[in-house]
C-alpha cells in the first residue's frame, strides 16, 4: 500500500485490535451532522439556497478526497479500463460502494457510473431527494486526477429518491 500523504489520517495500522474501518452508522451520523452544522452556520431563511451551499461544500470535500485517493493509489495508470478496475477495488476496500461504469464516451466528455450499496444512501427512506454529494464529489475528484481536466458530476439516481442504485453523470470540461 502506498504511503498515505494526508497527515490527518495518521498511521491507521496502529489500530491493532479494531482494525482500520468504522461502522456505516458512525459515517452517516458524522456525514449528516456536518451537513446540519453547515446549515446551522448559514442561518435561517433562504433554505433552498442554504441547502445548495451545504451540498456544494460536501461535494467539494468529496472531490478533495477523490483527488487524494487518486494520488495515493492510482498514480501512473494511463489506461481508463485499468484505472476503473483498480478504482473499483479501492472503493470496495474502503466500503464506499460497488462502482460500475454504465457508459464512457471520452470524445464527448461524458461518463456515467453507478455505485451500488452506496455508503451514504442505501437503505435510507425515499425522501424524494438526491443526497450523495460526497460521493459525486469523490467521482469528480478521481476522474479529474485521471483526465487532468475539470470534471463536473451530477447525481441522477439515488436510493433516497426511490432508486435502487446511485448513478452519477460526469461531464468533462475543456
Amino acid at each position: 500500500m502506498p504511503e498515505f500523504k494526508i497527515s490527518v489520517v495518521g498511521d491507521v495500522s496502529k489500530r491493532v485490535i479494531l482494525g482500520p474501518t468504522v461502522g456505516i452508522e458512525l459515517f452517516r451520523i458524522l456525514r449528516f451532522s456536518m451537513e446540519n452544522l453547515i446549515l446551522a452556520q448559514l442561518g435561517m431563511g433562504k433554505e433552498e439556497e442554504n441547502q445548495a451551499k451545504a451540498n456544494e461544500n460536501i461535494y467539494l470535500v468529496g472531490k478533495a478526497v477523490g483527488g487524494e485517493l487518486g494520488k495515493a493509489f492510482l498514480s501512473g495508470i494511463d489506461d481508463l479500463n485499468e484505472y476503473v478496475t483498480k478504482l473499483r477495488e479501492i472503493l470496495i476496500n474502503l466500503k464506499v460502494g460497488i462502482l460500475k461504469v454504465v457508459s464512457a464516451d471520452l470524445e464527448k466528455g461524458k461518463i456515467v457510473v453507478d455505485i451500488e450499496e452506496c455508503v451514504t444512501c442505501v437503505g435510507t427512506p425515499n425522501i424524494g431527494m438526491h443526497i450523495c454529494y460526497f460521493e459525486g464529489g469523490l467521482v469528480a475528484g478521481i476522474l479529474k486526477f485521471f483526465l487532468k481536466k475539470e470534471v463536473a458530476v451530477v447525481e441522477v439516481k439515488c436510493c433516497a429518491n426511490g432508486d435502487n442504485v446511485c448513478e452519477f453523470e460526469a461531464t468533462v470540461k475543456e
Binding site: L60, K63, A64, G67
Partner: peptide
C-alpha cells in the same frame, strides 16, 4: 489544478 486537498484549500 492539482486537485485533492490543495484544490479544497485553494478554493
Amino acid at each position: 489544478g492539482f486537485g485533492g486537498f490543495c484544490e479544497l484549500v485553494a478554493r
